[in-house]
Structure formats: structure tokens, C-alpha cells
Design a binder for these strands. Structure first.
Lengths: 249, 249
DNA sequence: GCCGATTTGTCCGTATGTATC
DNA sequence: CGATACATACGGACAAATCGG
């Protein structure tokens, strides 16, 4: 799908970095060099580099060059940036995924659901509760709410396989932005029933609202992870702080 | 610091969105309109919009316009994107921060520290252990390792006030990228000693490596948060899956 | 269904500023 | 100081998606 030039340059550089064609801390070729190499404009090279920066792969330094700061992840991370289905994320971590559907229902949002999920009261939804296994061990409990209007035809069989494949492939839904919140919550009776928690009394919880390309909220999911199999990674950049004079006093 | 034009447009639009000058789901003015409004080029407007998109504030739709998808956070969030000092983050959440220094030492990295922090064996470091209070309640336990070579002159007094102010202000260090990992870990004896955990037996743990603008790792921090006061937010975007040849047929 | 107007997406070339060496 | 490198900004061109007539 993305055959844009900046994207192919981005992927090419990314692969070179990952395969250590450039050493850690080494400078990448200058923009000027890359322009010649890829036969494109400066803007296009800069855009590719901007994406690598956002990924935490490189660090441009004014007047000096662009430094490779990529370090391969030693330990498998469960969740990293982007929006991924359970199957995609399991595959990235080389684990065998499987799913058991615990509940599958058609419901109508009430006040309580509105407050939790963001779907307005009266909205027609699917509610799905699923247990997720990695290499045969139950580790994640998912509660999904899907907007029926945009996800019609969902079945337990699809829920067991891959909802995202169905939505993107069969229905042609375009998944766009997702707003996620990560918290740590006490275990519930349902958690305890299905997941062997050892002596943990907390779960790592990712709550997310997902929008399609029309900006319509079509999914709310609460994904409850057993702590020891949970890891979330992120790259942040420093922003200059705007100034709050009253603190200085 | 950032007096760049795109940045002022970004901040202006951001404030308008936050103060609901544009309603949720409403379209922003078109690029053409914004160009006239701000008296700048199209690229400059587009760059500001790109930043708002990365923040999850808006969603550009090809051929249609740019939609406002910002929803104010109901519950105070403790940690969101970016690199923030404890004081900055407390202020953003309108809480009164205070800090007690539990340990302050000069150490040399050994094998174990190298493995945990990424500092090579033999590196001269400061090790600081601090207890963080919000509105007088102890909620966070921080373990910091700073590279002495780049952070010389640190004292317990500075550690109690603000290390970042000292590094950025006095030393002129420029903080750049940070690689963070979020996990949930069992409480330690030290956690229990200083933080009233109720019956939680886990902590939310953010481990981060921070680099300066020369790409040098100068800080490793492990920040252990009491679960009920912890919240992490994120906006993700769906990346097109690279190759489905059958679609092209 | 076609066409044209609007809007965003991609790409180019150029100019100027600023930091580094 | 000049050369090199990245940062910002401008203006223009064409493509692709959407919408209304």
C-alpha cells in the first residue's frame, strides 16, 4: 500500500539500521549524500529521517549529522507502539497465539457502558469476552465492545480467529487512530477464574478507544494482562517546557 | 525556546482545540484557510497539523478535511508522552510535589549495574534513591543512576529540588531522547518500607534510559509507582501492513 | 456516471538561518 | 573565516480522495 517514496527510503534505512549496516552511535550519511543515493529531494530524505527519529532509531544533531541510536531489544516485548491485533503482536514476539471466546452477546449501551467506553447510551454493540493464550498458557483477558453498525456480521468463530482480519479484509473498515490508557488494577473474580495469577493481586490493564478513518469510534477494548508477561515500550523526546512563572517563586 | 513559526501555529491550534473553540468531531479550517489566517506557506501549516496528529488531537482525512478528535481527560493522568521531570508532571496534574532523598552515593558500575542500566562496567555514576510525594502522600520511589562525567556537581540538595533544572540550567546539558519500558513488578521491601501500599503487592514500574543531544546515555531511572496513582496515556496509529499481493491483482 | 471544485498527500527546488568543525 | 550539516520556510506542481451538481 505505501509506495510513497519517503516511505521506501524510511524502510530501507530502517532495515540497514536493524541489520547493523550502520554501527550503534555511528553517523548516517548526510542528507546531501542520501539525496544523491536515492535520487530525491531533500524534503523527502528529511521526512524519512523524521519517521526514524519518531521510532527512536536515530537522533539528528544540528550541524553535526544524524546518529544511529538503535539498540536491539534483548528481551521480547509484548506491546510496542502502533495498533496491533493480538495475533500480530504474538507473531512479532514469536509466540503461538490462541483464543477462547468466553462470551459473545449483542447489547445496547446504557449509562454505565457509556461512561466506561465512550459509546453513547442506546448504541447497539457487540460485547465479546475472550481469553488469550500464548504458547497454551492463559495470560490475557479481553473485554471488547464493537459498534454493530460498522462491524456487522461478527460471529464467535470470527472472534476466535481474528476480528481485525475480518474488519479490514472482509468489511473494508479502515482502522486509524487509537487512544490508549494503561493502568494497574486489582484482579477481579473473572480474572482469577481464568488466569493462573500465582500470587499477583494486580493486572496490567490497557483500555483503548479505536477510531476508523472517518473519526468514528467503533471499538472499546479493555485488555487485562498478567503482570509478568506484560511489557510496554516507548520512545519519548524532550519538549521545551512552556514556563509556569508561579513555580519559580 | 521554540520560536519557530510552525510551533506557534501548533500551540495556537492546540489551545483552540483544548478550549473547545472547535467542537469534538468538527472539521478544522482547511489548510488554505489557515494559510491565509497565519500568513504562512502550506508546508508550515501542514507541519503544525502533523504535530497535532501525533498528539492524537486531530485526524486528517484525505479529500475531506482535518477532524478534531480531542476529548479532554476526565481523570487526572499521571504520565503522558514526552520526557518530564517529576515537578513538571506534578504541576501538569495540579498536584503539589515534594521529594525526600533517601540515598545519595557515588558508585562505579559493575556487571550487575551494566546489565540493568546499560552503563558499561567501570563507569563512574551517582546513585540516588528518592521518595516522591504528591500532596504530601508518598507515592513514587525513584532509583536514579547519573553519568558523573556529564552531571558533575550533583548534590543531595539539588536532588531534593530538581535535577533536571540543574542539568539543563546550570550545566547546559541538553536532554534529548528517552527509551522507556513499562512493566508491573512485585513490591520490594524498600517499596513497603516507604509507601503505604494498602494491599497491593505490585508496583507500576517505568524504566528509562535517557540520552543527551550527543547521543550519550547519561541517565538510567527506575520509577516505581503506587498502582492507584498511576496512569499512562498514548495515541497510536495503525500502520498499513506492507504486503498483500493478492489485493493488487 | 461524469465533471469540476475542494481538500489533503506527495514531491520538488530554492533560499535563509544556525550550529559544528 | 569558510565549509559542512541540519532546521525552517516558501512557493509551486501534480496526484488522489471526496463531494456536489
Amino acid at each position: 500500500m505505501p509506495k510513497a517514496k519517503y516511505n521506501s527510503i524510511y524502510r530501507d534505512l530502517k532495515e540497514k539500521i536493524e541489520t547493523e549496516a550502520y554501527a550503534y552511535q555511528e553517523m548516517l550519511p548526510s542528507e546531501h549524500t542520501l539525496i544523491a543515493e536515492y535520487g530525491c529531494s531533500r524534503n523527502t530524505v528529511r521526512r524519512a529521517i523524521a519517521e526514524l527519529t519518531a521510532d527512536g532509531y536515530v537522533q539528528p544533531m544540528h550541524g553535526k549529522g544524524v546518529r544511529n541510536i538503535f539498540q536491539p531489544v534483548k528481551q521480547a516485548a509484548f506491546t510496542v507502539g502502533g495498533i496491533e491485533s493480538f495475533r500480530e503482536s504474538a507473531a512479532r514476539n514469536r509466540r503461538r497465539p490462541s483464543t477462547k471466546v468466553l462470551q459473545f452477546a449483542q447489547i445496547t449501551a446504557d449509562e454505565k457502558i457509556q461512561k466506561r467506553t465512550g459509546f453513547l447510551k442506546g448504541t447497539e454493540l457487540y460485547y465479546i469476552q475472550r481469553l488469550r493464550f500464548l504458547n497454551g498458557e492463559p495470560l490475557i483477558l479481553d473485554h471488547n465492545y464493537f459498534l454493530r453498525e460498522l462491524t456487522s456480521g461478527l460471529t464467535p468463530a470470527i472472534a476466535e480467529r481474528s476480528v481485525y482480519d475480518y474488519l479490514e479484509g472482509t468489511l473494508g473498515l479502515t482502522i486509524s487512530t487509537s487512544r490508549r490508557t494503561l493502568t494497574v488494577e486489582r484482579v477481579t473474580q473473572v480474572d482469577e477464574k481464568y488466569i493462573d495469577l500465582h500470587d499477583y493481586n494486580c493486572m496490567a490493564v490497557i483500555s483503548s478507544q479505536t477510531f476508523d478513518d472517518n473519526g468514528i469510534l467503533f471499538e472499546f477494548t479493555q485488555s487485562r494482562h498478567r503482570p509478568d508477561y506484560f511489557r510496554f515500550q516507548d520512545v519519548a523526546t524532550r519538549r521545551r517546557v512552556p514556563a509556569f512563572p508561579e513555580w519559580e517563586a
